[in-house]
Each structure stands twice: as C-alpha cells, then as structure tokens.
Computed example of a mutant assay.
Amino acid sequence: MTRVLDYFSTLVAEDESLPLTEAVLALAQDAYPDLDMQGTLAELDALVLRLQQHLPDDASIEHKVLQLNDFFFRELGFSSNTNDYYDPDNSHLNMVLKRRRGIPVSLGVLYLEMAGQIGIPVRGVSFPGHFLLRVMTPAGNVMLDPTTGHSLSEGEMIEMLEPYVATAGESVGRALRLLLQPATRREIVARMLRNLKATYLQTERWQRLLAVQQRLVILLSDNIEEVRDRGFAYARLNYLRLALEDLEHYLGDRPDADDAAAVETQLHELRQRAQQNNHD
C-alpha cells in the first residue's frame, strides 16, 4: 500500500504537471492491486490511433468533435451505467474502459484524454450532480454531456441545476454562469475520490474507505476535514493510535469547528478503548 500511495503522491505533486488520466487510473490500484497501468494507458492510446485514421489532417474542431462523439458513443459504445450507478467500478478507469460503462466524471476523463490527443480544446466542468465537458470552438463554448455527447442548451443546464439551488429564476442563471468554470485536474481527481468515498460509506466497506481517505489527504493536503475523515475511518477499523492522531490534529487546527463537540466525544471514546486494550 505504501508503494501505491507513494506513486500517487508523485503523480499529484504539482498542479502544472498532474497527468489526469494516469492519476485517475491509479485510484483503481486499491481494488485491483495487479493492475497493469502502462498496459491500460497503451490500450487507450490504441483507441485514439483508431480514431485518428478517420480524421483528415485539416479537420476543424467541430468536425473532430463530431468524429470523436461518433467513435466514443456509437462505435465504442460508452454510456452511463444506469443499472448500477453506485458500483465502485464506475470510478475505476480500467473497468470503465473494459465494460464501456461509467458515470459522468469517469466517462468525462476518458473523453478528455481522447479529445486532448486529437487537438480538441476541451475542459471538464464540476457541475453539481453531473460532470460536464466544455469544448472551446471558434463559434464559442459548447457544453457536452459526457454520457451521451449531447450538446446542452442553457435551459437544459438550468433545469439540471434547479435541485441544487435554493431559489429559482434569475439566481439560477447567475449560479449557472459561475458553475460552468473549468475544473482543475486536481478537482477532477478529488471528485472521483469523493464518489468512491460516498459509495464505501454507504456500503460500510471501511478498508476501501480508508484507502480513499489516504488518497484524499495526499491530494488535498490543505483540507483538514479529510484528515478528520481519515481519523474516523481509522477508528472504524480499530487503528486507535492513528485515529487519535488524526482527530487530535483536526481539533488542534479547528478548535471552534461546528463538529468539535462530536469529535471530542469520539476522541474520549477512542482513548477509553485504547486504555482498555492496554489493560487487556
């Protein structure tokens, strides 16, 4: 596990050089420790070579997008795994590539990789509830749904956004403009990890949750809440000393946090358990 985390740490060390596809693929090493990273990336490159055979050298951005959409969604058959949306494999890029099924953000990462290799200027957008793609064309920006390739109108996006904002009307349109800013590669990796985190919390798979939390602490080194959540994961697995360290660190940094009393209660219980273990 240490080797795998050291590799991930190296990948995400610098924002400017963070290799998005490789970093996202590396998340699957927790579930697939024998994963052939370079072989999987080579498989993706081979798909791009197939796509490039359909493209003339002077293809416009719009033509490239049409060809990529046809290749990605029709020929390769990538789509949303609507039958089992919360399957962790929807976030494991090796399995998304194999099964051609995923969730918006994992499909989006594959689309971004292919688009980038053929010269399409496209960025990911961390839209609430549904990751989007923003293609920059000479005629203006086009927002794509990475599960279908469908070009989204402003009205469709406002409708998608309404469950996430308190009031409808003009404020939704204003919120929409703010939410269509491109996401950084670090933010995209974090979104992938938080999807896995939610799945493992829901299914109470604590060892897998801990692996995700360790990566979140590495990726978001300034986010003390992820250290707290790693402490909770340690506590679930009875790693008492490590749980105490993380939760004490959290309270030391955020003594006035809204959940300070709850964390202090957890710490008290952990200290009692540790003391009991020492007496046994």
Rank of each mutant, 00 (worst) to 15 (best):
T2Y: 00
R3C: 04
L5A: 01
D6P: 01
Y7F: 14
Y7A: 14
F8L: 01
T10P: 00
V12N: 10
A13K: 08
E14A: 11
E14L: 08
S17N: 11
P19W: 09
E22K: 14
A23Y: 07
L25P: 09
A26V: 03
L27S: 04
A28C: 02
Q29Y: 06
A31E: 13
Y32E: 11
T40E: 13
L41E: 01
A42R: 15
E43N: 10
E43T: 12
L44K: 10
D45P: 01
L47S: 09
L49H: 11
R50A: 06
R50E: 15
H54R: 14
P56C: 01
D57V: 08
D58C: 06
D58S: 07
D58I: 05
S60V: 10
S60P: 03
L66A: 12
Q67D: 12
L68M: 06
L76K: 12
N81F: 04
D84L: 08
Y86E: 03
D89K: 11
N90K: 02
S91D: 08
H92Y: 15
K98L: 10
G102H: 01
I103P: 10
P104G: 05
S106H: 11
L107G: 09
G108N: 06
V109L: 02
L110M: 12
L112I: 01
G116S: 00
Q117G: 02
I118E: 01
I120Y: 01
P121Q: 14
P121G: 05
R123M: 09
V125L: 11
V125G: 07
G129W: 13
G129S: 05
R134E: 09
R134T: 00
M136K: 15
M136F: 01
G140V: 14
N141G: 12
V142E: 15
D145M: 09
T148A: 13
T148C: 11
G149C: 10
S153T: 15
E156C: 07
E156V: 09
E159A: 15
E162V: 12
P163C: 08
V165W: 06
G169K: 07
L176E: 00
R177N: 14
R177F: 06
R177T: 15
R177L: 15
L178T: 13
L178D: 15
L179A: 13
Q181K: 04
T184M: 00
R186H: 13
R186A: 10
R186V: 07
I188Y: 11
R191Q: 12
A198V: 02
T199W: 04
L201K: 04
Q202P: 02
R205F: 01
R205Q: 15
W206V: 04
Q207H: 09
Q207W: 02
V212P: 09
Q213C: 15
Q214S: 06
V217Y: 08
I218M: 07
L219N: 05
L220W: 03
D222S: 14
E226D: 14
D229I: 00
F232H: 07
F232Q: 04
A235V: 03
R236M: 10
L237P: 03
L237H: 10
N238S: 11
N238R: 14
Y239H: 14
Y239I: 10
Y239N: 12
L240E: 06
A243M: 04
L244I: 11
L247C: 05
H249D: 03
G252W: 02
A257V: 03
A261L: 12
V263P: 07
E264K: 06
T265P: 00
T265I: 02
L267F: 04
H268T: 11
L270M: 11
R271T: 02
N277E: 15
D280F: 01
